[in-house]
Write a protein that binds this DNA or RNA. Structure first.
Length: 822
DNA sequence: AGCACGCCGACT
DNA sequence: GTCGGCGTGCTC
């Protein structure tokens, strides 16, 4: 009986974002499964493209003209059953296309290359009657055994031949079809062994020598009495070429076996392995988790453990438990704390059972890791956000460390929230979800309060040390007392002290570059990016002004470009400036700076950390990058240079973020035997973020913040959906965002809703231009309206009716619960 | 999206 | 004629 497949095709268009029905040919009927990647003919020209099987049906009621699937592209289905569920869920949740959700899941090296080939179909033509160019085409095709790729043909015949090809086609002399090649970017090694009995070896060698196949004879004698030899070794050893090996294979004298080769990932960072001795709190935490493994319905766990309370040890113990049950674990870490140090900690413990997935892997390496997980060779996956989609076979637990980090929200469509995806994944697979943080996000902590999550607490630091005391310094006061420097007197003295005592200092400022902007003091000319609505950051070392959004750089002239005065001045501070000031005040101090500018080279990250760890520097200056996971026993002082810098951001999460980052950076001091000290400089000493952070009082902060969220209808009480229209043509952008607004109002009116308080906009985005794209947004809150209904309406207007409604010169971005609305 | 096709103006 | 540029319509 014929069967039919429901296929999602790899075509990133809204019009093809639905199931296509294909007939399954008999020869693959018994192999094909849901989740398989297949090759299907598509469109008028039957171009072969990738597709994904979402369902297999016995009948095909709706369509008459079904085409047949060409082939299956992988032995095993690329998508697991749970992947299919997640894809469907993501599509609804994040208002994205099927193919966008699918793209999150399978490694991007798997693809199909297509090209057109031109071949002779008919010999019933008189060559002599053809025109010169037509002859040339036919000659070229015949030269390549009756078939050549169109690209190659055009390259070989340099003149324009399109019209002659068309003519030949009309005369039915040639035909153009599509061909394809499946690319997997996989690496294999090959092993050789004899395919003849030992007793036959002598004879074979003799007969080969007779035919003057000396190299082949040499290979046979080399292989004799050996179990297996690697192809590469053989080639090196005997200085033979692949051709002699190939002919031996054709004569069936040897067997070649393909072996998966896994490219090694280098980790240069080494740490001394400490024996894990869990304290009472940690043991209790592990036991709670363990007792839940068999539990049918699993609530997620929120592990609230103060900095240094040993969350990682808890993770390791529960992973060990999972391993002993044969189950897989996924550990997600924010990209910036996926440091060699963190990796080494897990690697030391689990060795080769670990697969690593992060942005710095090459495509090949990522592919290898993917395969190792898929084949069950790696049972523990450590990675950033996207590792949540790792193809584990039998998942036991998902751990999201530092789950409050904003990097768990994807910035590209689909703009998924990793915690939500993980929750769905765990629900579907019956796995445990463990969210760990010292400073939980307000949203998730609220879910503990209302009983959606179980809470586990680690209240004490593993070594029972107190958190280092935080001294808050009022920089307004410093200024009043005549100190114009970026260092308060207290911080200056503390740094000086540390230099004398030969202990180390970390200075934190969440901004790279030298100064945030540069302008003319005479005419107030401001250096701005030509393609973005952003002032340029000054990088003194290179003497450039740089746009941190699009990367645009311009050399800073001596004179003001507008009024020719010499009064150009930079304002605000960045890490580069701190480095300069430190060198000015403490010329003998050895300084390292770690930010995106100094870590762009591969391995530079490791370099800086290793140097600091080995005591080759006294002071480490850095951005967010240094706020996490670093464990340096000799650091006794942490200076937070401008704690309130983030507070001025127009973002409802800025208080939360400030509180979190102070906590994290402070935790870098006094981690070992030496006593730590934190100096926090701010202009706003009375802000509640700073007040509670000073005492490491998470609950106090939470209670204050949750009240504000309630009053202003922010998360977790209300959702926010942002719709941004952007494009090069500002008028068109405005016109189109207005169309969306009008359409939403129209639909709402029809549904009897007349109060539009919950819609904000359309307005220009706070950053109104990026990369020459003008940006306008509408914000929707689910106030007095069901979130499902709201999403439905937005989906209907912005996705389903998009082409009908919107012009083609604008693009659209939808973000549910955006991390930032800039 | 991305492909094919068809129509139209420009140009040897 | 004939080249190529763009607008249109469809994808099992």
């Amino acid at each position: 009986m014929k069967k039919y497949a429901q296929v999602i095709v790899d075509n990133n268009s809204i019009y093809t974002d639905n199931f296509f029905t294909y007939e399954i040919p008999d020869d693959i009927l018994d192999q094909i499964k849901i989740g398989h990647r297949v090759l299907v003919p598509f469109g008028k020209s039957n171009k072969p493209i990738q597709g994904f099987i979402f369902d297999i049906l016995d009948e095909n009621e709706e369509h008459k003209n079904t085409k047949k699937i060409i082939d299956i592209l992988d032995e095993e289905p690329l998508l697991r059953d749970v992947d299919i569920k997640i894809i469907k869920w993501m599509k609804d949740e994040y208002l994205c296309k099927f193919i966008e959700a699918i793209d999150c899941i399978y490694p991007k090296g798997y693809r199909v290359n297509t090209y057109k080939v031109i071949h002779l179909v008919n010999n019933n033509f008189t060559y002599e009657n053809l025109r010169f160019e037509e002859k040339k085409i036919i000659d070229e095709i015949l030269k390549h055994k009756g078939k050549i790729s169109l690209d190659k043909l055009k390259k070989n015949i340099k003149s324009n031949i399109d019209s002659y090809i068309k003519k030949l086609r009309e005369k039915r002399i040639i035909q153009i079809t599509w061909e394809s090649k499946s690319i997997k970017n996989e690496k294999y090694v090959y092993s050789l062994r004899l395919n003849i009995q030992n007793s036959e070896v002598e004879n074979t060698i003799q007969s080969l020598n007779k035919k003057r196949s000396f190299k082949q004879a040499q290979i046979i004698s080399f292989l004799a009495n050996k179990e297996k030899v690697l192809l590469d070794d053989l080639i090196k050893e005997l200085k033979v070429t692949k051709s002699s090996i190939k002919s031996l294979q054709e004569k069936d004298l040897i067997k070649i076996e393909k072996i998966d080769y896994f490219r090694k990932i280098e980790t240069t960072y080494k740490i001394d392995e400490k024996e894990i001795n869990l304290n009472q709190e940690q043991i209790k935490a592990v036991n709670i988790l363990k007792s839940n493994i068999q539990n049918e319905s699993k609530k997620p766990f929120l592990l609230h453990g103060v900095t240094g309370s040993g969350k990682t040890e808890v993770y390791i113990k529960i992973i060990q438990e999972m391993l002993s049950l044969g189950k897989d674990s996924i550990v997600l870490v924010p990209e910036i704390s996926l440091t060699p140090q963190t990796i080494a900690r897990f690697k030391n413990r689990f060795n080769d059972t670990i697969a690593l997935l992060h942005s710095r892997l090459s495509d090949g390496q990522r592919q290898d890791e993917y395969k190792r997980i898929k084949q069950g060779k790696a049972k523990i996956v450590i990675g950033a956000r996207s590792a949540i989609f790792a193809p584990c076979k039998d998942l036991g637990i998902v751990i999201i460390d530092e789950f409050h980090e904003s990097s768990y929200k994807s910035e590209t469509s689909p703009k998924y929230n990793t915690i939500e995806v993980a929750k769905k994944l765990c629900e579907e697979t019956g796995s445990i979800l463990l969210l760990g943080s010292a400073t939980p996000s307000i949203d998730e902590y609220y879910k503990c309060e209302i009983g959606e999550y179980n809470k586990i607490e680690l209240k004490n630091r593993a070594n029972n040390k107190q958190m280092p005391p935080i001294e808050v310094i009022d920089m307004k006061e410093e200024l009043n007392n005549g100190n114009k420097s970026i260092f308060s007197r207290a911080l200056y003295e503390a740094i000086d002290n540390n230099l004398v005592n030969k202990t180390q200092t970390i200075l934190f400022l969440n901004r790279r570059g030298y100064a945030n902007f540069i302008s003319c003091r005479k005419c107030s000319y401001l250096f701005k990016c030509s393609s973005c609505d952003i002032s340029l950051t000054y990088h003194k070392y290179k003497n450039i002004a740089k746009c941190h959004y699009c990367g645009y750089e311009v050399e800073v002239p001596k004179k003001c470009p507008s009024c020719d005065s010499l009064y150009l001045k930079e304002f605000g501070i960045g890490t580069e400036k701190i480095e300069e000031e430190i060198k000015k005040y403490f010329p003998n101090a050895r300084v390292l700076r770690m930010d995106r500018d100094t870590t762009s080279k591969k391995g530079s990250h490791e370099d800086i950390l290793n140097k600091f760890k080995n005591g080759q520097a006294d002071i480490l200056i850095g951005t967010q990058m240094i706020s996490k996971g670093l464990d340096f026993p000799n650091v006794t002082l942490v200076g937070i240079l401008s704690a309130d810098m983030m507070l001025n951001f127009p973002d409802f999460k800025s208080s939360e973020k400030t509180f979190q980052i102070i906590n994290q950076v402070a935790g870098r001091a006094g981690r070992d035997l030496l006593k730590g000290r934190v100096i926090l400089q701010t202009y706003d000493t009375e802000h509640y973020s700073i007040r509670y952070a000073k005492n490491y009082d998470y609950l106090g902060f939470y209670n204050e913040e949750i009240k504000i969220r309630k009053i202003f209808n922010y998360k977790p009480f209300n959702s926010l959906i942002s719709v941004v229209v952007f494009g090069k043509n500002e008028k068109s952008v405005i016109k189109n965002i207005q169309k969306i607004y009008d359409a939403v109002i129209y639909v709402l009116n029809k549904k009897g809703i007349n109060n539009f308080q919950f819609i904000l906009g359309p307005n220009p985005c706070p950053i109104s231009k990026i990369n020459n794209n003008y940006r306008w947004q509408i914000l929707f809150k689910d106030l007095d309206i069901e979130i499902k209904l709201l999403k439905g309406i937005i989906k209907y207007i912005c996705i389903e009716k998009r082409d009908f409604l919107l012009d083609s010169d604008v693009s659209l971005s939808i973000d549910t619960d955006p991390e930032s609305i800039l």
